[in-house]
């Protein structure tokens, strides 16, 4: 417990140092920015607002975790950020350009997705799956060029699945498949990768493995990686920033400041569990 507290403190200092570095260095490139964003659904009669007044700026090379209770609107937010559904108000900017002004093919070159839904055909080999990430760059029939091949191999290497590349998707475990899907997104060669719950169905080891992998990718390839997850304790340890979604507000901060301002306490109803600041974990009330 004490050790965990020390770790957290250490991490906080480290993060403070990072922030100072950020401020002193010349301003970094903002990959994803939202401006007074309101998200929700429009039905025939009325609009249902899921969350409003969302402002965030995600810089390049950042790993960002989105956390919140079930049904709070994480998926809605991700769908809005990835242009699957329209914002009710406000706007989303990618590389300082409104997402609505992008041509579909141009958007595919700056943002890639890893979704929760399974891919339609499990008969693809891993290589074919990752190669499909190059679709925005290939010609009319989808031929793989030298450069495409280079990117595909790089993606396979970064996710450490070169040995699996001739395996079919149906032969893989959930963890391996998740890595392959991340490799596919990497091959798409975008500034921003958005993942919707990449750790579901995985055991604790693979959850940590995937999130650690995402952290490594964000650092090594200088991409912005945004994911939603229920792994709050793991995310606190690994993320540069976290987005906390509650009924009342959406806050984007470093994990340390979120801990110190008590944001995690408001995540869930307090009758069953509470956030333990020292260990960065949730505890069941006895």
């Amino acid at each position: 417990m004490l050790f965990g507290y020390w770790l957290e403190k250490e991490k906080c200092y480290f993060n403070l140092y990072e922030i100072l570095k950020l401020v002193t260095e010349k301003q970094q490139h903002i990959v994803l920015r939202t401006e007074n964003l309101s998200i929700g659904y429009v039905s025939k009669k009325e609009e249902t607002i899921v969350a409003s007044n969302i402002n965030m700026s995600l810089y390049e090379g950042e790993l960002v975790g989105l956390v919140g209770a079930n049904g709070i609107g994480k998926s809605t937010l991700l769908r809005t950020l990835s242009n699957v559904q329209n914002p009710l108000k406000g706007a989303v900017y990618i590389n300082d350009k409104n997402i609505k002004t992008y041509q579909p093919l141009d958007l595919a070159k700056v943002m890639s997705l890893v979704l929760t839904e399974p891919i339609a055909s499990k008969n693809l080999t891993i290589f074919e799956l990752v190669a499909l990430g190059r679709q925005p760059y290939t010609n009319w029939i989808g031929s793989i060029s030298e450069n495409d091949l280079l990117e595909i191999n790089k993606a396979l290497e970064l996710t450490n699945i070169q040995d699996l590349k001739h395996k079919k998707c149906f032969e893989l475990s959930d963890g391996q498949l998740q890595k392959a899907l991340i490799a596919r997104a990497l091959a798409q060669d975008t500034n921003l990768i958005i993942l919707d719950e990449p750790t579901t169905h995985l055991d604790i080891y693979h959850k940590a493995y995937i999130l650690k992998l995402l952290q490594k990718l964000a650092k090594e390839t200088n991409r912005t990686i945004l994911y939603s997850s229920h792994e709050i304790d793991l995310s606190i340890q690994l993320c540069d920033k976290m987005i906390v979604m509650t009924k009342d507000y959406v806050e984007t901060e470093t994990p340390c400041s979120l801990i110190s301002n008590g944001a995690f306490n408001t995540l869930f109803p307090k009758d069953l569990i509470s956030f333990d600041k020292k260990s960065g974990n949730f505890r069941v009330k006895k």
């Binding site: 595919a108 891919i119 339609a120 055909s121 799956l129 679709q135 290939t138």
Partner: peptide, 24 residues
């Protein structure tokens, strides 16, 4: 059908993935 080969291959991932790859 030859012209739709690329689209068909993209659709193997499912419609949402295909959309995220810039497919109309």
């Amino acid at each position: 059908s030859v012209l739709s080969v690329k689209a068909l291959n993209t659709l193997l991932l499912g419609e949402n993935y295909a959309k995220s790859l810039g497919l109309n």
